[in-house]
Design a protein around this nucleic acid. Sequence first.
DNA 1: ATCCTCCCCTAC
DNA 2: TAAGGTAGGGGAGGAT
Length: 1064
Amino acid sequence: MRPSLLPLGGDEAGDIDIYGASHFGQFGEYMRRKRAKLQIQNATLTQPGEDTVLFRGLSIHINGWTQPSVQELRQLIVQNGGIYLPYLDKKSLVTHVVTCTLTPAKAREFKNMKIVLPTWIINSVKEKKLLPWQDYRYVHQPPVESAQGTRIEQRTLLSFATNSKILATETKLRVNTNTTIPLTEDSQPAELQSKHAETKASIPYAADISNRNAQKALANPEWRRTHTSAAPDFVEGYYRNSRLHYLSTWKAELRALIAEAQEQLEQDSHTTISETDVHAEMHMPRTDVLPTANMHEIEPKKAGSTESVIDKIMLPHSANVIRDQTNNDMQRVIMHCDFDCFFVSVGLITHPHLRGKPVVVCHSQGTQGGASSTSEIASASYEARKQGVKNGMSLQQARRLCPTIMTMPYEFERYKQLSLQFYNILLQHADDIQAVSVDEALVDVTREVRKLSRSHRCHVSSQPCNHDTATELAERIRTQVRQATGCEISIGIAHNILLARLATRRAKPAGSFHISSSNQTSAEILQFMSPHDITDLPGFGSAAKSKALDKLGSSNVGKLIEISKARLCEVFGPGNGATLWGFIRGIDKRPLERDGGRRSVSCDINYGIRFADQDEAERFTYQMAKEVKRRLDDLGMHGSLITLKVLKRSASAPIEPPKFLGCGKCDSFTKQAPLYFPGGRAASDDQVIGQHAWRLLNSFHFDPQELRGIGIQIQRLQPNIGSKGTNSTAGAQTLLSFGKEISSPSSRHANSNKTVDQHGKQRKSTSIPPQMGVLRDERKQDVARDLEISTLSQAEFNMYHALPRDVKRELDEEFRYLAQSPVAGPSKVTSTKGAIEEVPTRSSLSLQKRNLDQMLKSKTQRISESELRSLSIDPVVFFSLPEEVQQEQLVRTKLSREREDRHYTVIRKKVLKPRKSSAPLAEPRLRLSRPKAEFGAPQPPQLAGRKLHLEDTQEIQNAISDWVDRYRHWTPKEKDVGFFMKHLLRCVGDNSMSDGGIEKATAVLKWWLVLLRRYWGPQEEKQEQGAVNEVAEVGEAWWRAFRGVKVQLDAKVRVNFGGSISLR
DNA sequence: ATCCTCCCCTAC
DNA sequence: TAAGGTAGGGGAGGAT
Ligand SMILES: Nc1ccn([C@H]2C[C@H](O)[C@@H](COP(=O)(O)OP(=O)(O)OP(=O)(O)O)O2)c(=O)n1
Ligand SMILES: [Mg+2]
């Protein structure tokens, strides 16, 4: 009865990576890039002589082992005027590849290049003339017999195509000369080829034929001004129509929504449980999953049936078990739920007459574009898929495969609506849920499946229940979704995410499929895995496939199972290798992902970018900045780091790529800078972002006409002052209100009825149960926390515990002690680690005392401005906050202060960057929401440890201003001064060819001087002693630091250049 | 060792 | 004519 795990017959490996093939035209041109070092080394090798022109204009790469050696060949190339390319990357144009042997993967990669034997170099040098490379062409021998006929055919075609003369004078050698390729103007060569290439299409022939349709359109200046990035409202219009933009946006919204629901639930359960005993828990009102639907009837505590009591008491425990321990992985029940051809399914509701036909959703409608539309297909119906049509293909490609194809327009609003209904239904059944995308989610339904099983056993007494309750539940969910949305979903079920996802493929269309850990032996699971390709595994795509093919000889899971874990790690990296090793065996221990809070906000447009001049580019950049700012505002965030990304047409790409107004093959560049606002840390400002972005863009000095894509990313995010700071966004708001329409439902009686139940009002057992796992973690942490807190004064201790739970958790996260074990450290306490026991010194006591006083004051009366300032809190900002937040802020700041003063090692929960859990204690890390509200002012003043951006005067001034300004009430930290000095010293270093290094250092010092005079002018002359007041004391410390740095710099300058730096 | 930065890669 | 966006995992390699 159990489903077979053997591969289905029928379609199989014809896995053409269509998306990869057309995606940005970058194909599998995968090459690990290394930094420029080698190229520099190389430059030093060059000996420009008079007759070194043999290889002039040629860029030659040497692949793999060669005879003679790479070094020798390199020397020959370089000495004879050629450019040696140590690595193939997409930014350099290679003309020839020299090799003795080629792996099949490489052969594919180099398919369209001139591949020659080393003897070509040697003989050319010997004869002092450039010999025809064709005579030395490397011919790849397919390792096995295999019918590679087509490929060889293509090679032949290629060599013919490139057979045209090679002039030694060519500076940029075109890899492909198009003239011999017969193509009509509407059949795009790139797509033609990718269609029947069984490998990812490499650089297509004739890639340098400019798209004539596009050229024609762009030739009209008026058209260009209204239809491309030159248009004043291009950004807005573009985003209204970009499906990928919607996909990304929706995903973020859904994740935020779910995080919010979970957070609330967690809090509720904590509160209840921590204050009550198990009995009380039985009466605990369960909060519905939907944030909006929260007030629900309290469970009529009619613990009537044994069953319900068991549920109440046991379930949290099972949930607990599920949550953390890996050895219980086999017990989880994960469902992967995914709409069948989502956009098409939705579209069919309003276009019922197209049902059963090959249909796609794309922008181009009807006969628009004729047979040559490059419009991308977002979703194809299963009828269309039978003909080979795939999501992501261009319409013209699809028309070639299926001439009768029909199109439907996008209906973005409805996608979102239906998605919300879908999620609402899933939430009714979820212990935990991960939003994968608008049409797809991973749901942990362990609890409900268990419950169903139990009740089955009850009712069907003494039957060894070979009944698949998971599938039963899946079918019920499918029915629910069908009734609510009119669309089919498919569900894959398994005990882990990997298998659930793979099961979904089997389930589709309109079905469910269960890979049961109890019914399937591990051998069967291996058998199930074996026919898959590496690209079927989540997280492994075309680049992974190339690596596998290249370095391991196969991308098939059944073959890869023979590779050792160590080898996989070598090839794919330590993390990915281990993951892959598990995946190949059907093992996947990953928990469902939770939204950890936003870390960056960005917008990119890589379509329709066609500037005529700088002005257009500038205007566009400001449009983008405005968009980014809007997104930040919606999130209530701002950030202090900006990254600009630019796509520039690759030298080898045609002016107009095959895809209409696409970006084509591009080189990509990024540059980042700190983002400063005039008044300090205000909310974001689109003009300021625009200026930064434009300045960065300009710094590349690219021809505006060559630009093909622009992106602005903001990082190091912080909540805006006074902002609620929750994850709720405008989008989430919409979602929430939508959620209200769905009544909270239930599940306790769910097993008694098969219809979508009406008793929704009765109970809410459907809600997520209290998360015992989390609770447990929290308790564990409580211990640690109390330890830490014990170093606080009693008043602080009290206040700490009076804080709202979530705030406490935040503080806890934010300030963890690394040193908790009583390591008997050396009496010297410089190594900040493990110095705990030395702490209770007099100074710390007095510190406590002082804080106590301040704490008391802050509780009873308004804290004074000067006190605030002493904590580097801006009084104006402070008093504008709600009182609770004020308190939180005070405690937060004081905790931080005190601990630092005591030389504790404080691990700041990188509020800005809580990436990897570096958590030294408490292994299962409690996942927390982002800080709710935080001051912009007392930012952890982190100068050291981060890259200093000292590219231009503006940045220099900003960086120093920021530093001095933030610390103006404090003496500068030695560490920061040292860090700063080190950078300056490097500027005037001997080894670096730093042109302008001295100037830069001088500029820095000058600006520093300006600031010091501004703040502490009077102290400049005073030597040591006689600090009249605190301010003067601080000022003198700053001046001392300045003089110290100046002395060091002077010393080094004297050595390296003679003379000293003049600041005059 | 562990961090940080600057990428690449992946997914829908 | 079409609307190839985006957040986040992870790795390489340098800094600390
Ligand atoms: N290259 C792509 C892939 C997907 N999508 C959009 C349209 C899809 O309908 C939706 C969901 O993507 P899926 O991968 O789930 O594909 P479908 O739902 O269309 O088909 P199925 O899930 O049945 O395979 O995302 C898109 O716009 N472009
Ligand atoms: Mg789908």
